[in-house]
Write a protein that binds this DNA or RNA. Structure first.
Length: 600
RNA sequence: GCCCCUGUAGCUCAAUGGACAGAGCACCGGACUUCUAAUCCGGUGGUUACAGGUUCGAAUCCUGUCGGGGGCGCCA
């Protein structure tokens, strides 16, 4: 936001170094100075210059020399426009900006740009983000929610940062699990499905768990039980073969039950504010995937060991690696049926060729790291330049205190259950803390705040860490949580509502309080945080920023009087600061996929 | 055996190679006749697992050791 001033300052410093005959660093970088009630930018250029001298053979203590250089530059240069003062501090050269100037600029920029404040210029690259991909015929649990929330926030971030963004989902709609579910439905539950999208979806998932139990050998199995199980197993296998052969009855059953799951998924995505642009179905890429295997064999990338073995790619060997790293990837079963890897290759080809993506991000859990490394390397061997811009955004599992979630053991935490509980808890708090809130608004606020708390609890942990699910911490409303951030937005909104109208201009030529300066400083950092979070593929950066911004606003709220400011000038100025803070908070929350309520 | 991730306050976690390693929870003590107390202020709490190395500067990068998690040719 102060790029013109900083590039001017960079030139001035470079000229001063030249006059002083001190080596000039390749690049002079600026970063915000540690906040001490004043706002500025600092550079470490003097350290680099001093280090360069030391490397050139001059005998110097770099620390001391850096400070010396900083002070020498200080004497050399004349005051820079818009900077209040320049200081040398412990080897750093710091420029402090005139508070009235920067406050005015930040506030005006935010209020002019509104919901576009922080948006990066289009960078000409197209990115596809693949997420929100549970299997059909399964339950959508809290782990799926982590995937979806992470992918959605990332999509919003990269889109806002300047990428043309395509949201893609790749549900697994066929496989042994799906057939298992269909088999049990057909055999035991035909036409017994309940009404209601979520009830029906969940009911189907329960059938799957039950069926899996029936088909899994027990520890001590009687002869009778064994015979029964083997008979079931045969039926299941037959059904899979019929599906594969395109049997119309089995296909109809498959389409019907699959749709039940997809309807539920659709509802859940709506709740989470997700709009997927492209759905790829596993069942669709099956055929094209087989063709790709032939191509890879013809190109000499894959080796066909059929009928004794499968089709494989010896990746390490192809790359000339002596140590095993990417190992060997199996890309087709010996019986000619496709694998996950086969389909992912086909899918990547389609992304590159049909959708022309420059980058492709896969939001998939960490256990598939090797799989994706293999896929990306095969794409590279295959000659796709985009392969180097494929990125697996791996995230850790959501586990329970007692261990992994397992549908079969029945210990899973369903997203819909957490969502319902979250809203219930919010309603309880509203009854206590804000009993005047009209009845008709309570449900809406409960939805916004309850969902926000849940989403934030999933986004405020680094993606490569596992999360141990706990009701109370997932649905906490105090401390570093979404409601804390949302409450800052509500408070800002409350002040502005009481003020009536927002002054169209304000002067900041008064003694700004430290909390005001700090708030402005943080708001001004937002655009840079957007870029950083997008480039690192890390919504966590935005989650952390959101909390810091809210914390600073709460501090501002307590120490700075807005409506009862000492003068009209200060009141107008602070109203505009408050409005800018509200906008920054709203934009921040939006990028996390969290709504910003006006009351709560 | 090999590969990936990881080790930071009592607990859960932050920290573009930069200034004094920060939050939340928990605990103790304060602040509501004053813009929503879902808030704020203060206090307690650290040899960043360990040993070397690179660097002007390392929690961060490199090597090794130890501990935790995940993965490794016909599951997804």
């Amino acid at each position: 936001m102060f790029d013109p001033e900083l590039s001017l300052a960079t030139q001035i410093i470079e000229r001063a170094l030249e006059r002083l005959k001190i080596p000039i660093p390749d690049r002079i970088e600026w970063m915000p100075t540690p906040f001490k009630g004043q706002w500025g930018f600092g550079t470490n250029a003097c350290f680099q210059a001093a280090a360069a001298e030391a490397r050139a053979g001059k005998e110097v203590n770099v620390q001391a020399r850096a400070h010396e250089i900083a002070e020498a530059i200080l004497d050399e240069i004349s005051p820079v426009e818009n900077f209040a003062r320049i200081e040398a501090e412990r080897g750093y050269l710091n420029l402090y900006i005139d508070p009235a100037v920067y406050t005015r600029r930040v506030v005006n920029t935010v209020l002019e740009q509104g919901e576009n404040f922080g948006r990066g210029a289009p960078n000409g690259e197209r990115m596809m983000v693949e997420y929100a991909q549970p299997n059909t015929h399964h339950s959508f649990h809290i782990g799926h929610a982590r995937n979806t929330v992470l992918g959605e926030s990332l999509s919003r971030l990269v889109e806002f940062a300047g990428f043309e963004t395509i949201r893609a989902s790749y549900p697994g709609d066929i496989g042994l699990g799906v057939i298992t579910c269909m088999w049990a439905y057909q055999k035991f539950y035909r036409e017994q499905e309940p009404e209601g999208i979520h009830q029906r979806g969940q009911w189907l998932a329960n059938i799957y768990s039950e069926a899996t139990a029936l088909l899994t050998p027990k520890e001590s199995e009687t002869e009778e039980e064994k015979a029964q199980r083997e008979a079931y197993e045969a039926e299941r296998r037959e059904m899979y073969q019929m599906w594969d052969a395109g049997d119309s009855q089995v296909r109809d059953l498959w389409r019907m039950t699959r749709q039940w799951s997809l309807n539920e998924l659709d509802e859940i995505l709506k709740i989470l504010g997700v709009k997927i642009d492209v759905f790829f179905f596993e069942s669709e890429v099956d055929e094209p995937a087989k063709a790709i295997v032939d191509e890879l064999i013809n190109l000499g990338i894959a080796e066909d060991e059929r009928p004794e073995g499968p089709v494989i790619v010896k990746i390490d060997e192809k790359l000339g690696l002596s140590k095993e790293k990417y190992r060997t990837s199996v890309i087709l079963r010996s019986d000619g049926t496709t694998l996950y890897s086969t389909k992912d290759l086909a899918l990547a080809k389609r992304k590159f060729e049909k959708y022309n993506v420059d980058r492709s991000v896969y939001v998939v859990d960490v256990r598939q790291s090797l799989h994706f490394q293999q896929v990306f390397k095969i794409l590279e061997l295959w000659g796709f330049p985009q392969a180097s811009k494929c990125y697996h955004l791996a995230y850790g599992f959501v586990t329970l205190p007692e261990g992994t979630m397992s549908a079969r053991r029945g210990n899973i935490i369903l997203f819909m259950d957490v969502y319902a509980e979250a809203q219930k808890r919010v309603l309880d708090i509203i009854a206590k803390k804000n009993p005047d809130l009209p009845e008709e608004q309570r449900k809406e606020v409960a939805r916004q705040v309850g969902l926000g708390a849940l989403i934030y609890s999933l986004l405020s942990v680094d993606n490569n860490k596992d999360i141990v699910f706990d009701w109370d911490s997932a649905l906490s409303f105090d401390g570093k949580t979404a409601p804390y951030i949302q409450n800052a937005h509500v408070r800002a909104n409350s002040i502005l509502r009481k003020a009536g109208s927002l002054p169209s201009e304000a002067s900041f030529e008064y003694e700004l309080m430290p909390m005001e300066v700090q708030l402005i400083e943080l708001i001004s950092r937002f655009p840079a945080i957007v870029q950083q979070a997008a480039m690192d593929y890390k919504p966590l950066h935005m989650a952390n920023y959101a909390h810091q911004l809210a914390k600073t606003f709460h501090g501002f709220y307590h120490t700075v009087r807005v409506l009862q400011a000492e003068s009209k000038q200060m009141k107008d100025a602070r109203l505009r600061i408050t409005a800018a803070a509200r906008q920054a908070l709203a934009n921040t929350l939006r990028l996390l996929g969290i709504e910003a309520p006006r009351v709560m």
